[in-house]
């Protein structure tokens, strides 16, 4: 089993943090995992991304050329990475309609639907919740445990709630290959 993930969005949307949660949860699940951030001018503003590899054997290249999953938190990220994704794209419904990709698109209303507004600024956690619900690569309990390890107090509580909300947004489940 090897899963390659790209998480991308604007600087400040929690791209790197979402990736750290995934990597930490993968480690807690007994997988090998690598997390590779973009560290160029992106981190000083503009789009940022991180690349994750989750595997049941030692990770070879930590660089993701073709992703099994893309979490795209803004339109430029979707445009940049959708052609490099063979699998599942998780994005906002505002961007999804422009998505021209053979990948399966999970379109979420991350801002307003069903009380989503209380998770404003937590697009990263909502999309992460939806991603694990859809792919089954990580259990929600491991993701919650990962959040508890790397976030503190009130921030951790709201992150957990947003992940659970995202998880709930995705009905149908498919198993990880």
């Amino acid at each position: 089993m090897e899963y390659r993930i790209i998480i991308s969005g604007f600087g400040g949307q929690g791209v790197l943090f979402a990736g750290k949660v995934v990597a930490q949860a993968a480690m807690l699940s007994g997988y090998e995992a690598s997390w590779l951030p973009s560290y160029g001018p992106e981190m000083r503003g503009g789009t940022a991304n991180c690349q994750l590899v989750i595997s049941d054997k030692p990770v070879g290249s930590p660089v993701v050329r073709t992703a099994d999953v893309l979490i795209a938190m803004n339109m430029p990220s979707l445009t940049k990475f959708m052609d490099k994704t063979n699998g599942i794209i998780v994005t906002d419904e505002r961007f999804a309609k422009f998505c021209d990709s053979p990948a399966q698109v999970i379109s979420l209303n991350t801002d307003i639907c069903n009380g989503g507004a209380k998770f404003e600024g937590l697009t990263n956690m909502i999309m992460l919740g939806a991603m694990i619900a859809k792919t089954g690569i990580l259990g929600i309990s491991e993701v919650i445990a990962a959040i508890n390890r790397i976030a503190k107090g009130a921030a951790a509580a709201i992150d957990r709630a947003a992940v659970e909300y995202g998880w709930g947004c995705v009905g149908e489940r498919v198993c990880a290959s």
Binding site: E32, W35, L36, P37, P62
Partner: peptide
Amino acid sequence: DGILGQMMEA
């Protein structure tokens, strides 16, 4: 190198 320095692993 930049990758080894920046990447996270267990």
